[in-house]
Amino acid sequence: MKIFWSLVFAVINIGALGIFIAAPYMGWWLPKNVSSFGGDVDRLFYIILAVTGFFFVLTQGILVYSMIRFGDRKVEKASYIHGHLGMEALWTAVPCLILMYLGFVQVPAWAKMKYIDLETWFPVRFSGKNIEHDLDMVVLARQWEWRIRTPQGSRAANAAQWAETGNLNDLHLTNEIHAWKDARVRIHLKTQDVIHSLFLPNLRLKQDALPGKTMPVWFQAIEANVKYNPATGQLEELTPNGAWEIACTELCGGSHYRMRGKLYIHESKQDYDRWFADAMKLQRSHELNKQANIAASTGGRQ
């Protein structure tokens, strides 16, 4: 009977292991990666999973073997080993080495995420030098939405200054990040109230926004999910389930759960520019309407 339960235990373990092995191939696990550095992040994840998986198999295998071998039949007594210095040194050294390996193997991935140009190890932080990027963007977090501001002509002339003050002809959006495929996007991440955390799961990007600070982040999407149709003024999804999410991942008050948005990656800069021009027109007409409304309600006095 004990063998029966040992086998049940073994089957459950093997099933669990099977699900873990199948998950990456079935797309059950991570959202689709569309980031230039996302592959490195995913690889780290799978390396750690493989290491823990190996020890899972090892320990559970020994456990099941011992249950079957020694559990029921009183054929022989298990032997106990005490004070084996070699074994103890081994099981201390092996985890040490694994942790050291993980510590070093993560460095390139981290560098790619934090530094916009790996060739020169140029920091994404604003040092005033001419950083190679294609699109500037201010993401301002507040309770409970993302406010996104992009400059006319994609790049701001004096980005650090622009991030704080802005221009009159900036495009303002709420809960929508727009960029195009292969664009190097530099985000100036800010918050106006509490700590929020910008999370773009498909881009493998997560960064806390701290009150009183402007945090630099960057990404480069290697796939597009929308195409702008100027005739209808609509964004057309290129792929099924093309909506990529923006989420807040730091508890920021009661309606934290509502702080979500969408990431739109256009297929080319031309497509983005067409959309930008129309969005800008729409914003102008809203502004004119608003001014007209104010003028009407105040009788021309302001």
Binding site: D193, L210, P211
Partner: peptide, 22 residues
């Protein structure tokens, strides 16, 4: 723990702090 720039909650602006939430 309050940032130097102050914060904005809706229409209400806090007085500038001088600390650091981090």
């Amino acid at each position: 723990f309050l940032p130097p720039g102050g914060m904005t909650f809706g229409n209400w602006q806090t007085t500038p702090g001088g600390g650091q939430p981090l």
